[in-house]
Design a protein around this nucleic acid. Structure first.
Lengths: 143, 143
DNA sequence: TTACGAAACGTAAGTACCTACATAAATGTT
DNA sequence: AACATTTATGTAGGTACTTACGTTTCGTAA
């Protein structure tokens, strides 16, 4: 790749992200927002401000570690605001930034649609042509 | 868990999914749609019908294996239609089902917003308080 | 007759994710 | 003087995701 092409890539990336390009920063942002816990954190924070433990209780199945990590990613991207009261024992409140609220709208829309269309989706559900190494996704439904 | 509770869970799940519940099937659907390649596959298929290789060229960085796997998941959930012409060499076309088109709308909306807001997002970008095991997500931007 | 094409499948190896558990810190309580 | 509280961090280890590479099929081109 020539320097000119590289520069053009930079410009393209800055002007308007292109998630189809492997090196575009938008890929990372997309990953943060659509990560396993990222979606759920955003969806919950869209309903208000929460403390760490409250957030964790709200989202079934997150470990402390993953929640902390996810929150840091979202904070790093400017979607989540973290307010530390500097007290001991620690008190920290999480909420969405204006940017985060806009992003959350899309995620809430998606999640809400899935929840509503779940019946239809499960009806159309097929065993999926076998690929041998079929990764069972999430938990194998302990229920 | 008692049989009654199990039945109640089934009813809850069928009536309306709840992604905040760890065992709800909607979690799996959400994961498929928001998986690393799932989002991109849906976004591309929202623009038309593609053959396997064309889809792969369109989405930068997917391996054959991952694309095939992702397509099978989405087909299993009823979002993607697979048309096999049974020829040799193989010819297979992928497109969205009506259900898939609805889902894709939300994903395209999200992706489009990210691409457009990327400048603003990168501006607000902070190094993210260190958590030592900071997973660099995707590639560290080789460009 | 040999090489090529297109869409997977199989296996092995690498990497990243995720969980579980132990640790820290200042104050108020027992 | 011990102890519980709350939000993390560090480490170790398992699990799942990804990639790389080889294999299959069989008409068509060389």
């Amino acid at each position: 790749m020539t320097p000119a092409q590289s520069a053009q890539n930079m410009l393209d990336a800055m002007a308007r992200g292109n998630v189809l390009a492997p090196d575009c920063p938008s890929r990372a942002v997309l990953q943060h927002l659509t990560s396993r816990w990222g979606v759920l954190v955003m969806a919950v924070l869209a309903t208000g401000t929460y403390r760490f433990a409250a957030l964790r209780r709200k989202i079934g199945g997150v470990s402390e570690r993953m929640l902390a990590q996810t929150l840091q990613q979202l904070e790093g991207d400017g979607f989540v605001h973290r307010k530390d009261y500097g007290e001991v024992p620690p008190r920290v409140e999480y909420s969405l930034t204006p940017l985060g609220e806009t992003a959350a709208q899309h995620l809430v829309g998606l999640v809400g649609w899935i929840e509503g269309a779940l019946g239809e989706i499960l009806s159309a559900h097929q065993p999926a042509r076998d690929l041998s190494a079929s990764p069972d996704q999430t938990a194998p439904a302990s229920a």
